[in-house]
Nucleic acid binder design. Structure first.
Lengths: 146, 146
DNA sequence: GTAGGTGCAAATCGTTTGCTGATTC
DNA sequence: GAATCAGCAAACGATTTGCACCTAC
């Protein structure tokens, strides 16, 4: 499930099932989201798409991202300050590790997470639907720079 | 540490130490944050303060909240959609449980959380500075309404 | 008296929306 | 050919800022 090409094909299939069209711009956005390098922001996607299609507008990126989000094909990491970030390769809740210096985002392995959800559900009576777990820190590269 | 009055006194002390003043509006904001009922938003604080001081402006609420945030006396829960929410009684990272229906926020007890941080730090080499853990679900009251 | 605070209005920034003309299927 | 999409500009909502007046200390 971490194969960008397979993920891209899957997204394309899902779009066609819903009678959505594959324009060159949209294709470029899909590729970037499926690659998921550093969990890009809309602005970053925009810059990369403009390299191939200089006419592209920000609104188009937003529209495609919103569509994929509604389809559940990408995971949105919302931030109240900076812009939101997106994960197109693992569109389900999972922990993230965010470098506060370079703003890169990676996926750490966390073994004991599902226990946490159960623990909270049992002790509170809530019906847990989703979760969000972010760790903030300084990545090894940025530590060296200091 | 969950005593609103003690927390209020502590905030007042911290403000005076920094040569900040205690205006009636600011006092009202502090009280609401120290009570921490449901982790209020700026808008909610504004509405409650206006009950006592109708002249109060939103900007003043924002300025006080920003000041307290910078002083580390309140915890900000940023949300990219809805407005941010604040915790004035436990101004350090801890898990939250958010009802997606009524938007209320409570603090669940989670035992195994500190292990998680260590696990991530060790396996990634990051210097973990902070974290954020949110669970989204439907609270018992809202479950009954359905 | 003075540093700091308040209230107002305007500015900001990420995101959304309305519309018109173009494009995919 | 028709439904969908792209691009542009205007609208939006939460938050911030600039500034003149005010007030706690």
């Amino acid at each position: 499930m971490a194969d960008p090409q397979a993920r891209l094909d899957e997204m394309i299939t899902k779009l066609k099932e819903r009678d959505h069209r594959l324009t060159p711009q949209r294709m470029a956005v899909l590729k970037i989201l499926a690659a998921n390098e550093g969990h890009p922001s809309v602005e970053q996607i925009y810059e990369r798409v403009k390299a191939d299609f200089p006419m592209t507008s920000l609104a188009t990126i937003y529209k495609t991202v919103t569509l994929l989000k509604e389809m559940g094909e990408i995971l949105e990491l919302g931030f109240s300050n900076d812009g939101n970030r997106y994960d197109g390769i693992r569109p389900y809740p999972h922990p993230h590790l965010i470098c506060t210096e370079c703003k890169n985002i990676v996926d750490p392995d966390v073994a004991t997470l599902s226990e946490l959800r159960q623990e909270v559900a049992q002790s509170t009576g809530y019906q847990i639907v989703s979760h969000r777990l972010d760790f903030f820190g300084i990545c090894p590269q940025c530590q060296e720079k200091e």
